[in-house]
Simulated scan of single mutants.
Amino acid sequence: MLANSNSEKDHPDDISLAGDGFDTVIKAKAAVDSDPKCRNKVSCADILALATRDVVNLAGGPFYDVELGRRDGRVSTIASVQRHLPHPDFNLDQLNSMFNFNGLSQTDMIALSGAHTIGFSHCNRFSKRIYNFSPRNRIDPTLDLQYALQLRQLCPLKVDPRIAINMDPVTPQKFDNQYFKNLQNGQGLFTSDQVLFTDARSKATVNSFASDEKTFQKAFIDAITKLGRVGVKTGNQGEIRFDCTRPN
């Protein structure tokens, strides 16, 4: 979260991150540091982890304990995003490779993908699937046709490609297992979403999460707890920032 145009939040893949979300983190950090007993003892990384849990819970998802004690890194660059965020066009092998590299299983990856039950993306991240998929198919055949035609109405070719589209067309503001039911119906917005159902190796897990929300919630808690341990800095590593927008 550096205050320049080369920080992680400035990458095109992060364009959907709302500015007021960063402001909320900054305000939370200021509120914690206003107590002399807590000043410079809580990292921005921990605040982000807690904010994630609270957003999930406030949207109707599970409440879970957050492991604390992270320190903040000193590097935040656009280049780092490509190494850590899956691309919307990824297939299952590419998804598994990225998550396995960070110690996460295929089940973890599918459970974390379920977070697409809330939030939104932009037309330019999936427009190829509805207009120019291949020489033989203008529309990706793994997409439900009616859903694809609805997306075309929401994302005309000659309109700003940054128009926001809900990731979940059914319950976009509720953290539930609808995402997996959408995949069963050919309504995964990204290729990397729909492939979880079209690939036989992951289909059973999607069906399991679609049929039992508690199973999904437990898997999500396990996965996001493991994700929260990736690249953690403790002890003398990193720092606790005074200002979340820049290193000390």
Rank of each mutant, 00 (worst) to 15 (best):
M1T: 12
A3P: 02
N6F: 12
N6H: 12
S7H: 08
K9E: 15
H11F: 02
D14K: 12
D14G: 01
I15P: 00
L17C: 08
D20K: 11
D23C: 02
D23L: 12
K29A: 07
K29T: 03
A30R: 15
D33S: 06
K37Q: 15
K37D: 15
R39L: 09
N40G: 03
K41E: 12
K41V: 05
V42P: 00
C44I: 09
L48C: 04
L50A: 04
L50N: 00
L50K: 01
A51D: 09
T52S: 05
R53V: 00
R53W: 03
V56N: 03
A59C: 09
A59G: 06
G61P: 02
F63E: 05
Y64R: 01
L68H: 00
R71I: 00
R74T: 13
R74K: 10
I78E: 06
A79C: 02
Q82Y: 02
H84M: 03
L85D: 01
P86Q: 03
P88G: 04
D89Y: 05
D93S: 14
L95S: 02
L95I: 14
N96H: 09
N100P: 03
T107N: 13
D108A: 05
M109Q: 11
I110E: 02
L112F: 00
G114R: 01
H122M: 12
C123F: 11
R125F: 10
S127N: 12
S127W: 08
K128W: 13
R129E: 10
R129N: 09
S134T: 13
S134H: 07
P135L: 14
I139E: 06
D140Y: 11
P141K: 10
P141L: 14
L143Q: 07
A148N: 09
A148D: 10
Q150E: 15
L154W: 07
L154Y: 05
C155D: 08
L157I: 15
V159M: 12
D160M: 09
P161D: 12
R162G: 09
I163T: 14
I163M: 13
A164W: 09
N166A: 15
M167R: 14
V170N: 12
V170G: 04
T171M: 11
T171I: 09
P172N: 09
Q173N: 13
K174I: 15
K174R: 14
Q178Y: 09
F180I: 03
F180S: 01
F180L: 02
K181Q: 11
N185A: 15
G188N: 07
G188P: 07
L189S: 04
L189I: 15
F190R: 05
D193G: 03
D193S: 08
T198V: 13
T198L: 08
A200H: 10
A200T: 10
A200G: 05
R201T: 09
S202C: 05
K203N: 11
A204H: 12
T205D: 06
V206E: 08
V206S: 04
S208A: 14
S211G: 11
S211R: 08
S211N: 13
E213T: 10
E213L: 07
T215I: 07
T215F: 04
Q217D: 05
A219V: 02
F220A: 02
I221F: 00
L227Q: 04
G228C: 06
G228I: 01
R229M: 12
R229G: 03
K233L: 15
K233W: 03
T234L: 05
G235H: 08
Q237W: 00
I240S: 06
I240G: 05
R241D: 14
R241K: 13
T245K: 15
N248G: 07
